[in-house]
Write a protein that binds this DNA or RNA. Structure first.
Lengths: 206, 206
DNA sequence: CGTGGCTTTGACCACTTGGTCAAATACGAA
DNA sequence: TTCGTATTTGACCAAGTGGTCAAAGCCACG
């Protein structure tokens, strides 16, 4: 593996930098974030920060890679065994929980995509596309077997991404319109009903 | 009203600046966009640009205001007469068309929200919230009358926003995963089926 | 202790940024 | 054609940017 024997102090400072970078990049984007900003939030001087990461870009890239490593786990976890509707529902709920628990990661990703995905374009049309295509086959199989309604697998997945990430990325808007920021419960119920209505197979076709 | 008697040259240059600003701001965000960038795209020198707009912020604000003026028209147009399901479906399709036809405006808005809506926070909790609440009453009325299924009005609206804006804001990802960028037709069909399944009232309750 | 490597920092640099200003130029109505 | 106004520009500026570097401090281990 990528062995990096770190001293205690290295581990602590690198973690602080990544945390500060996540805060800043997820809100202001890459170009909108400054090194001084990150350095101050991490409690380090700028040269000291650059002792741990060679450049601003390196911090950003490290964050993005760490994100991609875990971001797709829920989708990977969607298996062809078990009840199809519940499999898909579980995936959607898992993603919604991530919007609640890791909104900064969601926004970091959103920022990167909004700007044209300059750092991860290859990943999108490579790993991500392959993974989605793979799951699309499973979903199409479920449809063909009559276990779920007939549905476009790709757009179903896009729907789940859209419906869940919206709550993290547009949290300010959601909270402003609702008048509070406890959207998780109602959003979960709504998401459940929405997908269930669309996916439950009609009895007519057997 | 706000009278501004413009010369032909003023109208042309202001329009060019706003167009260039929309391009830049929607992709790079406020802080990620430079005046030189806008000036060059608009075919003007930087001082000349600042002759038409007093500051970078003024360009951004002008774009945002122009956007807000028209962004909510589709929702405003959702009336309580006509068939409820079709009324909601028409709104959703209209929004999807806007994602197709005005993706830069969508991304500009997304960028602003992602950064915490510093310029339009008041608008969100003021005009927008009032409008959504108003439409929520209508939707709740439809549900109570049994004309559509029981649904949380606010989250229904969030769903429509999420499902439609996703295609504009995350176009890079959608296109990469699909392998092409002609998502409109399939997305429209999927959106239609999704909402119809959720909204069509069950026959049991009469 | 002492010493060699890990860590931190102040000073510095070239470049970019948003913005200013006075002077020059183009334009349109009389 | 002329003249006042609208428009344009080159030169400039202070602040902020990402990044460098040599020197200093610190810390564990022999």
């Amino acid at each position: 593996m990528t062995e990096k024997p770190q001293t205690r102090i290295q581990a602590k400072n690198r973690a602080a930098i990544l945390a500060a970078g996540l805060d800043a990049f997820s809100q202001f984007g890459f170009r909108g974030t400054t090194l001084d900003q990150i350095a101050e939030a991490a409690g380090l001087s700028k040269p000291n920060l650059l002792y741990y990461f060679p450049s601003k870009d390196a911090i950003y890239t490290a964050l993005l890679e760490r994100l991609l490593d875990t971001w797709l786990d829920p989708l990977i976890a969607m298996k062809s065994d078990g009840d199809p509707v519940e499999e898909i529902l579980a995936y959607a709920m898992h993603k919604l929980e991530m919007s609640r628990d890791y909104p900064r990661e969601s926004r970091l990703f959103a920022n990167e995509i909004l700007q044209g995905a300059p750092h991860i374009a290859g990943h999108l049309s490579g790993d991500l596309r392959a993974l989605v295509d793979e799951k699309a086959v499973i979903i199409r199989g479920w449809s063909a077997a009559g276990k779920i309604a007939d549905v476009d697998p790709h757009h179903l997945i896009f729907s789940i991404w859209a419906l869940t990430q919206h709550y993290a990325d547009f949290d300010v808007q959601v909270s402003a319109v609702l008048g509070h920021d406890h959207w998780f419960e109602d959003a979960g119920a709504h998401l459940d009903q929405m997908l269930r209505a669309r996916l439950t197979p009609t009895q007519s076709a057997d």
